[in-house]
Design a protein around this nucleic acid. Structure first.
Lengths: 224, 224
DNA sequence: ATCGCTTTGTGCTAAAATCCACAATTAAAT
DNA sequence: ATTTAATTGTGGATTTTAGCACAAAGCGAT
């Protein structure tokens, strides 16, 4: 096949010209392509992908067209090739170091999850302030006191952090992380953080999803 | 103050006429209002709320205007009153039963989280297929075999489920849940589920967020 | 009372996102 | 060779979302 082999810098003309919402869908495409590849499939189409994801084929084609021409008319997309291209675009053709703050139940779950590595991430440090938790062994890493955050972040040039600390400490933890040089934060605490505008924060809060769902459900509650 | 006291049915003319993206922001407003209330604040403005959330005040006002007039010119919004209204709109002025499938690290973290109840949800059943996990005590609930799902769902008229099972079983679990009568699923497995179109599924996958972040970061990886 | 400041709710405008539909191209079948 | 069916990439229309800007209204100070 006559796929182009351009370096990522030439594929993307201008990062800021591509809608953020498009970038947000690329990881979903990548995840699904890898799943199909795991099933032994070699080629797919925007139609098939769209059906699997519940979105229109046109949207997938338009999204990809921001970065280049990856498909072939009449045939579709070579899955391995498209995966490689998406990994290059998203810069996940390597392993990014991530630090995790908070060694409660959630921190344990995240630290023991072994699905990060194959998708481009590795938790290289876990921090907590509770003396009882410090020194605890979480498989690949040992819980360290929060005072060590800056040192570890700088040693690994780490840019990504997870906050899995209690809500009351989340803002304080964010401040520490940002002071240490962290650029992007995934926050599990149910609070909107106040950060400088060059810092990216994303949130995971299951209750936000539940409360979105209940709007559309017939009310059948346990009690008042 | 002259706040109207209409029942929810009269506030919302037609559920389907309100953009879903608006509904998705209401839980964030509610979460932030409760935080302000916890700090002892009694009144806020769309300006203050927007600054805290990083969105425009006009958007907040427009969002709320779909449901009624909750503020007062010159003053802003009474926090307690607006919270009550949002809770009523989202139907979280009560406790919704939720079932959880998967008693691994993540399942444990979710089952032990004690922040659900005050926001309208309670995990009333945890299920797993691993015989070693069945019978395990997770604080408020005991792990049951997945064969019990339908019975528990029906007993509690439960409409919401969390999937925290391994990726390979997620679709099968979803099928079981839907057959049992579940209407909305929060899926932690990194896979897009195939479900009937009347079933709502939302996803939580931290790697999707990481891969979104890395697009904007300077590439500094650990290894190839 | 009146003034000055604040804030809401909303009509209208602007921007962004989605989708339609089709020429161009490929591959397989006849 | 020719036909048939499939699929891409994209111009442009449509729909959706966000934002501006202002009249109306509330509050406190004088």
């Amino acid at each position: 096949m006559n796929y182009q082999e351009l370096p990522a810098e030439e594929i993307v003309a201008d990062k800021t010209s591509i809608p953020d919402i498009v970038i947000g869908r690329l990881p979903v495409y990548l995840r699904t392509l890898k799943l199909l590849h795991g099933h032994g499939q070699e080629v797919t189409s925007s139609q098939e992908l769209g059906d699997l994801l519940g979105i229109s084929s046109a949207q997938i084609r338009k999204d990809l067209s921001h970065f280049g021409e990856f498909g072939k008319q009449g045939t579709g997309y070579d899955i391995v090739y498209l995966c490689r291209q998406l990994e290059e675009i998203l810069k996940v053709d390597c392993i990014w170091p991530v630090v995790l703050v908070g060694a409660g139940y959630l921190g344990h779950a995240l630290a023991s999850y072994n699905g990060f590595e194959q998708r481009g991430f590795r938790i290289i440090g876990v921090f907590d302030n509770d003396p009882k938790k410090i020194g605890e062994d979480l498989g690949h890493v040992v819980v360290q006191p929060s005072s060590e955050i800056a040192e570890v972040v700088q040693k690994y040039s780490c840019q990504i952090a997870i906050i899995a600390a209690p809500t009351d400490f989340a803002q304080e933890v964010a401040n520490t992380l940002i002071a240490a040089g962290i650029q992007s934060i995934l926050c599990y605490a149910p609070i909107t953080l106040t950060v400088p505008k060059n810092i990216r924060v994303e949130y995971i809060d299951p209750v936000i999803h539940f409360q979105h769902m209940t709007f559309y459900l017939e009310k059948k509650c346990l009690e008042e």
